[in-house]
């Protein structure tokens, strides 16, 4: 197959970027989207041009490093996957594919398709941890946890921090990410020690990082590669309300 890619090129965070159009030929349908970009980059290098910079690491949908806006959707047109899990068979021969970096004030573009997501790290530092006893390893089943709570916590923990929720949100809100992290600790006994401070600190940190305010459009849930539910946002709202109103 042959496609035309229209990619956002930006030299560095201070430069003004623009779209560049490149034809890519001899693509097999079995190729991943990134293999297609790799092919493009090889040809760019041969021509003496700078390759397109994009974030990627595991290339199996579990690290959350990759992320780009493809034809108007976060991680491309298919729901429930990351960009690295997207294959060229999802496109048609002759298609023009528009590729843009995540757009949000709190995710400034570093170069081309690479954005700075350290704002997520700082939110995690503000409360995404638990206190545990040091010493010998505790018995694995010493603390009873209900199956329901374990499942909710696991759903929250499945967030890979890719930032698709922020990227797709019309308000650039980070509520789905932060709520998944608040949830995963709030429903487990291990998370009780910092329960109140955690939600307050993480919401404060989220606001300080310059993310927008959630208006419940639920676009985040629809675009999340791990299909994390907005029920976590409701839980965080509850947690935040309780933490603020109780003494």
């Amino acid at each position: 197959m042959k496609v035309t890619v229209k990619i956002w090129r930006q030299k560095d965070s201070r430069s003004k970027g623009s779209f560049q159009t490149y034809p890519v030929d001899n693509i097999s349908e079995e190729m991943s989207f990134f293999e297609m970009l790799d092919m493009l980059n090889e040809s760019l290098v041969k021509q003496g041009e700078k390759p397109v910079a994009f974030d990627h690491d595991c290339r199996e949908g579990i690290c959350g490093t990759c992320g780009m806006f493809i034809n108007g959707r976060a991680h491309g047109p298919i729901s429930g996957i990351t960009t690295c899990q997207l294959h060229m068979r999802r496109f048609n021969d002759g298609d023009t594919i528009v590729v843009e970096p995540w757009r949000a004030k709190a995710f400034p573009v570093i170069q081309d398709l690479v954005v700075d997501r350290t704002s997520f790290d700082r939110i995690m530092l503000s409360g995404g941890y638990i206190s545990i006893n040091s010493g010998g390893a505790p018995d694995a089943n010493a603390i009873p946890i209900s199956k329901i709570s374990a499942d909710i916590a696991m759903d929250g923990a499945s967030c890979i921090g890719c930032g698709a929720c922020v990227a797709t949100c019309k308000n650039s809100s980070a509520m789905l990410f932060v709520s998944a992290k608040v949830s995963q600790f709030a429903v487990l006994p291990q998370g009780q020690v910092e329960r109140k401070e955690r939600v307050q600190n993480m919401v404060t940190s989220m606001d300080e990082e310059g993310f927008g305010n959630c208006t419940n459009t639920y676009a985040c849930e629809a675009e999340c590669p791990k299909e994390i539910s907005v029920a976590h946002i409701a839980r965080m709202n509850r947690e935040f309300l309780k933490a603020n109103l109780s003494g």
């Binding site: 650039s172 927008g212 419940n216 676009a219």
Partner: peptide, 29 residues
């Protein structure tokens, strides 16, 4: 909220298929 959310979003996407992930009523409050 409208002002704060405008400030939180940077450049608009050249292509954004918002109708595939959210309802028109939720985006036009």
């Amino acid at each position: 909220l409208i002002i704060a959310n405008r400030q939180a979003t940077s450049v608009k996407y050249a292509v954004n298929k918002a109708r595939e992930n959210s309802t028109i009523v939720s985006r036009t409050m």
